[in-house]
Design a protein around this nucleic acid. Sequence first.
DNA 1: GGTCTACCTTTAGA
DNA 2: ATCTAAAGGTAGA
Length: 322
Amino acid sequence: MSLSAFHALPLPIVQLSLDAVLKCGQSFRWSTFPLPQPNDASREYRLCLYDRVVCLRQSPTQLFYRSVYPDPQPSETQARLLDAETLVWLKDYFQLDVDLANLYQEWGVRDQVFLNIKERFSGIRMLRQDPWENLVSFICSSNNNISRITKMVQNLCIHYSPPLLHISDPSCLESRQAYHPFPSPSVLARPDVSAKLRSLGFGYRADFIQKTARLLVDTHGTGSETWLMNLREETTEKAREELLKFMGVGRKVADCVLLMSLDKREVIPVDTHVHQIAIKHYGLKGSANGKKINMTPKIYEEVNKKLVDVWGDYAGWAHSVS
DNA sequence: GGTCTACCTTTAGA
DNA sequence: ATCTAAAGGTAGA
């Protein structure tokens, strides 16, 4: 395993803050490593894709990236091509063609509440994630918290996909970290998966995951992941309708997938947190007759409509900042 | 078609 | 120390 040097991509921190974006409930699979103090960046982020591990660091003006490849190591010529691919992937994953400063400006004009908080939460943008991983991750998210969701996603990778490679940290000779890609639908579709996941603490979500994988594979076979990816070309309504067919996928989870991996930037997944924000700042009723209002499909629509009205086309992106 | 409940597990707060 | 409520909800009645 060679420790290739980092490449640098000029990128102002207002366009992307790794600290704000990677560990806050969009993706649950990035791992972090503390760096020696003198460095500009506070920590390194790593994510295992299907054929490589991407490592990121950040300064106020630059994004540093490198890829680590499994053996046999690529030649220098090959590595140059592969690293170029990584850059293409980064631009896609972080949607760097979208000017975040512009969006913040626009949201500030449309919304006084946003104007007040925008300085404190800069650099928060929507990732463009893999739909399959995103779907499974958010099936895990129901009635759950981020730290447990993270452990569950880790467990899925550890138990259902072999490690692509290991990285030893120079700063800590003992540690030899394994990096697993996200498991495929066909592996998670196996009938014994639900019992195993239950024993791993997934609770009732164990069956949802196995059944969702099963339905996907039975319907679309080896083209399952491509089929999910192609929902990007469908309308929001059509794509949502397809997602709702899966076990464990209700409106909220479907909307997370639509927003975070299927390019539906206007979609706002309404969870309890967003509901509270809508009540506190955007004039929605929080209670009636002294009783707290529960989330219902009707309330969901009301919250959604109001916030899209306030924030516009990129409402889903705006909601992740608030 | 809207409304009510059970559901796994963990953890912060009473 | 024990207990409850809530945690980025959903399926089924």
